[in-house]
């Protein structure tokens, strides 16, 4: 989160759609989207871990594309739509990627998990066929410190298979 400044931070009104719900909020102009989602909207599923765009923990979809919410200002999503990890499951029914992450043990400490699932969601949204290298490239911006990635790769492959069969 930005260091404080001696100046008053101007505020602005932001209207956006998050997980299908419309929000209008007055926020400081320098507030990163990550902070907006977590501290203003209370959607703490999206995680911050480096605040430099190096780890991918804060990955969300903006108009369907993955972005790092630690590096986008909340002001920039005015009139745009954001999807976070909280927007994937339908009630208690898990998204197939979420279910696969549990099934393969891809969530150990779980901190990288929301970001990884969002990156995987964007990949599966875009492509009917996925090569091994496309899969790895899609997830290369998401650091996991626990798993060594094997169970994550397995989870995304499983989710892809299941959605093809569905």
């Amino acid at each position: 989160m930005p260091d404080p400044t001696p100046m008053e931070i101007p505020t602005m009104q932001v209207a956006c759609d998050v997980n299908g719900e419309s929000f209008t909020r007055d926020i400081p102009v320098d507030m990163p989207l990550l902070e907006f989602l977590r501290d203003v909207l209370g959607l703490t599923g999206t995680k911050g871990a480096c605040l430099e765009g190096e780890c991918g923990s804060c990955t969300v979809l903006v108009d369907g594309e993955t972005i790092n919410s630690c590096l986008m200002l909340a002001a920039q999503v005015n009139n745009r739509s954001v999807t976070t990890i909280e927007g994937l499951a339908a009630g208690t029914e898990l998204d197939v990627i979420q279910d696969s992450f549990v099934a393969t043990g891809a969530a150990q400490c779980g901190y990288c998990t929301p970001g990884l699932i969002m990156s995987a969601r964007a990949l599966l949204n875009d492509q009917p066929d996925i090569s091994e290298s496309e899969l790895l490239t899609a997830l290369e911006g998401n650091i996991c410190r626990c798993t060594g990635y094997a169970s994550i790769i397995e989870a995304v492959k499983r989710a892809h298979r299941e959605s093809q069969n569905a």
Partner: peptide, 13 residues
């Protein structure tokens, strides 16, 4: 299945 799996994949944890 990990008992904490569900909350970790939904962001509820």
């Amino acid at each position: 299945r990990r008992v904490d799996g569900q909350e970790k994949v939904t962001g509820a944890a």
